[in-house]
Amino acid sequence: MHSYDVFTQYERNHWKLTDVDFSAVRKDLVQPEYVTIAKSAVMGESNVIAAVHGFLNEFVDDYDFSTFAVVWGNQEVQHHYMFKAWLDAIGEKVDDGAVAAMRAPYDPGTTPSATLATNIISELTVNHIYRRVAGAVEEPVLHDLLLKASRDEAAHAREFIHYCRQRLARHPEERASVLETLYVYTSDSRIKHPVGLFKSNLTELEDHETIDTAFELFLERVADGDELNDLQTKIRRVFGSIVEMDLSTNRKVRHALAEVIAA
């Protein structure tokens, strides 16, 4: 099983939260926007429980992917707690009620392949933003945590890509749903993330940072003029490799979707 290879690789190479020296946090270098980023990341990463629950419900017939989902979930919980630990180190707290509101599982996607596609976009987006934000953060512990999380998200994206390819090989009729998912998340001038799309309207999140808060701050303080285009180009390139079609522009995504539906 592929999940066994992933599990053993993570066991050998993955970092441990207990090895991070949070006493080394440089409070004198902490900027207000760092706190906002960390609180937003805590909220985004707390969605892991809902996601794992949803995966196990939707992929009840796929032991291999379900096992990967549990391994993935452990690492995402680690991200949630690492940002929380950093906030604790500087005396900042996150509302537990807001975190608990993220618990409800996702409904199944239009197809299992669409669910996998959604998570590919999620991982690629957060990988990109964590890496770019790390470059702008001067506080060394948070800088290192962001880089660690970015590398983890890149590895997660690779595995979701694997399982999406595998799923489409067995169910080619789900290709249209993958293209639809790509279009939904890359068809306008905003950064879209599944957590923001499905959870940001919760009443418990009013007056609290969300993943969308971090994206807005990223675009305002860190991103350059071509940032969104660069991210979306990368995502389209990945999806093009999955379905073996040219998806380099939104126009081509629409044409590919029409072609697949008509076939």
Rank of each mutant, 00 (worst) to 15 (best):
R158K: 13
R170F: 04
L145E: 06
D212S: 11
T111V: 01
I191G: 03
A149E: 07
R175W: 02
T118C: 11
V137Q: 00
S122F: 14
L168V: 07
L116P: 00
R190Q: 15
D212L: 09
T213N: 08
R132Y: 13
L205H: 03
E173F: 03
L142M: 10
H143A: 03
D107W: 15
D107K: 15
A214K: 11
E180F: 05
E180A: 10
L145V: 12
L146K: 00
S187N: 15
P108S: 13
D207C: 08
V184G: 07
R151K: 12
A117I: 03
A176C: 07
P194K: 10
R158G: 14
A214P: 10
H193P: 10
T213E: 07
T111Q: 00
T181S: 04
H128F: 11
R151S: 09
D107R: 15
E138R: 08
E153K: 02
P108Y: 10
L182K: 01
D152H: 14
T118D: 09
T213G: 05
R190V: 11
S113D: 00
A149L: 08
T111A: 01
N127G: 13
A134Y: 02
H162I: 09
R190C: 11
D107M: 14
L205G: 02
E180K: 09
V137H: 00
E174I: 02
R170V: 06
N201G: 15
A169T: 15
A149K: 05
T186H: 08
K199Q: 14
L182C: 04
S150H: 07
E209T: 10
P108H: 11
E180V: 08
D144L: 11
T110K: 08
L142P: 03
H171P: 01
E180R: 09
V133S: 05
T181K: 02
S187C: 12
H193M: 15
K192Q: 14
T118P: 09
K199D: 12
P172K: 06
S200L: 11
L205Q: 02
N119W: 14
H193F: 14
L147R: 10
E206G: 14
S150A: 10
H156T: 00
G109T: 02
L124W: 05
Y185N: 06
V141A: 06
A134F: 03
V141S: 03
S113L: 00
R158D: 13
G109K: 00
E180D: 14
S150K: 05
V141T: 08
R190K: 14
E153W: 01
D207P: 08
Y163K: 00
L147A: 11
K148C: 12
D144A: 14
N127I: 09
D144M: 12
A149T: 09
V141G: 02
I191Y: 07
K192A: 13
E174N: 01
I211S: 05
R170P: 02
S177H: 09
R131I: 11
P108Q: 11
A214S: 15
N127T: 13
I191N: 05
E138P: 08
S177Y: 02
L182Q: 01
